[in-house]
């Protein structure tokens, strides 16, 4: 299973739990959970799925939660690459 699918599975598992909770808690619950426990590169993968692949495979509740999920800053450029001369 590719890592992208893993992110989808994990997000959907969280959504599945919140589907059974009172409707008012749904999107907020999913977003809070992801904000609290997902490291930035996991959230980046999630946003990549949503931004560039139409959120394919994601549960509707995850998609509803997306606006409430904290968008992580762009990935840090490792000092080695930053120090390397820019490509022409």
């Amino acid at each position: 299973m590719s890592e992208g699918n893993k992110i989808v599975r994990m997000a959907n598992q969280i959504a599945t739990f919140f589907h059974s909770q009172p409707a008012s808690e749904g999107p907020n619950g999913v977003a809070t959970h992801i904000n609290k426990f997902w490291e930035p590169r996991m959230r980046r993968q999630l946003f990549d799925l949503v931004d560039n692949h139409g959120g394919e495979g994601l549960d509707s509740l995850v998609l509803e939660a997306v606006p409430l999920i904290r968008r992580p800053p762009p990935a840090e450029v490792p000092p080695a690459q930053a120090a390397a001369p820019a490509a022409p």
Binding site: E3, W38, E39, P40, R41, M42, P72
Partner: peptide, 18 residues
């Protein structure tokens, strides 16, 4: 101030190369 990787996430990230 951001949460870090959990063990399974570390292993996933290792396989991905980060």
């Amino acid at each position: 101030n951001e949460p870090g990787l959990r063990i399974p996430n570390m292993l996933d990230a290792a396989v991905e190369g980060t």
